[in-house]
């Protein structure tokens, strides 16, 4: 089996937000509907203070409460595929918004307006792609839930080309946010492969899942100052 996870090293992260920008451009997400956000806060007390940076996107939980509640209302718009990626079908979404409060991480967004363009004066090269050629995950709908897809359009490309082993290694087959990190604070790959970078990081650096008390089994792991908690 192949199960994709992400590891984010908060000790290395310097808060440059390149991952946030890469996600915005790649997935046309900004304003009310950012798929990847940077949460920052001060730690310590004066004069021994520092800043901690945590980037947060969808955790692609094993037992995703967003999917549970979506199934409960009968929409069945949220699915978790065989690779562990949680995706939203915009056509099935009824826009009830229940997934937002159900998510312990505050991830799903249902913006009233989908974005016309990231920049006011010109379109990015991604925005120039004709709608028919876009991934269905990028053809968003107003008032419908949306969130990070682990850049499924890139992973899908690798799977279709029989290059699943290149995911997390080749930029074109790796989520955009993980590719651009300048301090190698992000890794993406198969947790079921004991030799993958993510497996090693989780094992050696004791990367932890956030808000474990919810028991959702998030598939994004964080290397924290002081190790697992």
């Amino acid at each position: 089996m192949t199960k994709f996870v992400r590891v984010i090293d908060t000790v290395k992260c310097m808060g440059c937000r390149a991952c946030v920008a890469a996600c915005q451009v790649e997935n046309f997400s900004d304003g009310d509907s950012q798929w990847n956000v940077m949460v920052e806060h001060e730690v310590g007390s004066y004069p021994n203070t520092s800043k901690a940076f945590v980037t947060m996107g969808c955790m692609h939980c094993e037992d995703a409460p967003c999917k549970t509640v979506c199934d409960e209302v009968g929409a069945n718009a949220i699915s978790k595929n065989e690779y562990g990626v949680v995706l939203i079908d915009y056509d099935k979404c009824i826009g009830c918004g229940y997934c937002a409060p159900a998510c312990p991480y505050g991830v799903p967004k249902s913006p009233e307006k989908t974005n016309d363009s990231l920049y006011p004066t010109e379109k990015t090269s991604y925005e120039k792609i004709p709608v028919d050629d876009m991934s269905p995950l990028h053809v968003k709908q107003e008032n419908k839930a949306q969130k990070c897809t682990f850049c499924w359009h890139r992973l899908e490309k690798a799977i279709d080309a029989g290059k699943i082993d290149r995911i997390g290694k080749d930029p074109e087959f790796t989520p955009a946010c993980d590719v651009v990190c300048s301090v190698n604070a992000r890794a993406f790959g198969d947790i079921d492969d004991p030799n993958s970078e993510v497996s090693k990081l989780i094992g050696e650096k004791k990367a932890a899942q956030l808000k474990k008390e919810y028991g959702t089994g998030p598939q994004v792991f964080y290397v924290l100052e002081g190790g697992d908690y």
């Binding site: 037992d63 409460p65 549970t68 509640v69 409060p101 159900a102 008390e213 919810y214 028991g215 959702t216």
Partner: peptide
């Protein structure tokens, strides 16, 4: 949400809760 919607509480089960694993 967690207090009422974890396994064994009064709401429908939304979170399995680490304490129930």
């Amino acid at each position: 949400c967690l207090s009422c919607h974890q396994e064994g509480s009064i709401g429908f089960t939304l979170y399995k809760g680490a304490t129930t694993n």
